[in-house]
Structure formats: structure tokens, C-alpha cells
Amino acid sequence: MEDNSARLFNDRLIRRLILALIVVVNVLIVGIVLALCVRSWPILDGTPLGRLLFSTEWHPSTGKFGLLTFIVGTFAVTAGAMLLAVPPCLLSAIYLSEYAPRWIRTLSAPLIDLLAGIPSVIYGLWGVLVIVPLVQDRIAPLFGVKSTGYSVLAAAVVLAVMIVPVLVHISVEVMKAVPRELREASLSLGATRWETVKHVVLRKSRSGLFAAGVLATSRALGETMAVLMVAGNYVFALPRTPFDQAYPLPALIANNYGEMLSMPHYEAALMAAALVLLLIVLIFNVTSQAILLRFARA
């Protein structure tokens, strides 16, 4: 055996190092928030919070930085995406967890993984080539409106497809966690399969399903490139209908990085936008993780 004291010394040294790394990775999120706070301080310091969050005036050249247009844009496209995505994803998850034969389950897993792995820019390209013309030529005329196609609706459709993997994956996991015996008890009482799903499986897994929805919302809120490419990014008005353009927060940040050094406070305002986005996303994200953690314990 080689020198034992050296082995033990190494073990203790690495133990310390690893512990330090674990602590660092845990405070990383605090570091991110602080870094954004510091860089956006010139704006946070001078502007009342109400004016920053609830004013629609965005004139970087005169130093007016109201984020309301962008916050509303973010929530508009996200809400649209959730409305479009939740019903089909829930039904698909029920199908995959309760009805589908084994071969469909094994086949669908890599397909849904593929959907999760497709880069955001490709979703954006698909949006520009397929969804935007569809909205412009087919859907908007159906409602008797004129639209360029670059709209809340187009962004919502693209986002809806992007959050499918999160929604389906977590929902299936959550429903699979419902004990088999509960299903059997329900079936033996004469309930049909659908009644068992409705009254037992969904009831038992509703908090987990809710968490899946909240998590998907947080993903949709922060999605950048695809939304940037199809939402239209109109600064001067709030979207009133799904056919209007929207300008979500991530798009604002991504679009203006080139110009931010040219005007005073512009960079600080964009960093403040990133901070606001991060805090909104964190609220949703932490909520869903906390629910899922409790669900896993129960």
C-alpha cells in the first residue's frame, strides 16, 4: 500500500474543495441577482419603482425608461401559449400515462426529447416561415382583421409548441406516481377508465399538474430568440388583440444590446429589464419547484 497519510490528506483536501464548490454553486443565483442590481443601479436609484414598472414611456434618448409595454408583452404571449398548450398537453399526458400501449410510450419518449432539444432559433425560423404567414393569410382574415402575422398569436403558437416537452414530461411523471392500487380500487367499484382518470388520477395529481403548468409558464416567460423573431416588437402601443404586435422583455434585451453603450443609462435600463424578467421567472419557478418537492415527499 502506498503512503496512507498522503491518501488521507488528499481525501480531506478534496472534501474541503468540493464543499466550497457546492456552497459557491448554491449562492450563484444570489450572485446573479446582485450583479444585475449593481449594473442597473443608475436607473433603480434615480427612477421611482412605480415609474419603471408601470409606465409605458420608452424613450431612451430622453432618458425615459418605462417597462410596462414589455412586461405586458411578456405576459400576453405567455398567457396565450399556456391557453394553447395546456389542454392538448394534459390530454396527451393522460393518454401516455393511462391508455397508450407500451410501444407508443417507448417511441414517444425520444420524440418529445427531440422537441426539447431543438434550438430556439429553429423554432423561430419555423414561426417565421409557417406560423406568421398562417396568421396573416388565414387566421386574421377569418376574424376580419388585418395583421402582418408578426403578433401575440404567432408568438403564443411558437411558445406553446416549445413548452410541450416540459408540460407532457412532468405531467406524465406526476400521474405515474399515483399508486396503482387506487386505480384498481376505483375500477373494481365499477368506474370506467375515464371516470377513474377524472375522479382518482387527476384528483390525486392535481398539485403536481399545477406545478408543471407553473414551471412551463416560467420557461415561456424567459424564452428569447423564437419570440423575438415572431412577436413583431412594436414599442409604441400595448397589444389589444391577439393580432397586435407585442414586445416582450427578453426581446427588448436581445434587440438593443448593440446600441446600449451609445446613450446614458441605456445599459442600466436594459440590465433593469433583465433583473425584472429574472425576478418574475424566479417567482414562478420557485413556486413550482416547491410544490413538486412537496409532491415528491408525499
Binding site: 454553486v25 428569447t224 419547484q289
Partner: peptide
């Protein structure tokens, strides 16, 4: 506790939008 908390905070960190990492990367 440390293990549970680290897993939780990694779940949270994984949800931070990539544009925010872009902004933080820029700050760094």
C-alpha cells in the same frame, strides 16, 4: 439539508432564462 437544498437550487438555476445568463455574462 445541504443536499436537498442544492438539488432545489439547481432546479431553480436551470430555470433562469438564457438571456439573463447572457446579461450576467456581459456584466462579468
Amino acid at each position: 439539508r445541504l443536499v436537498t437544498f442544492t438539488r432545489f437550487s439547481m432546479d431553480v438555476l436551470a430555470g433562469v432564462p438564457s438571456i439573463v445568463f447572457g446579461a450576467v455574462g456581459y456584466v462579468l
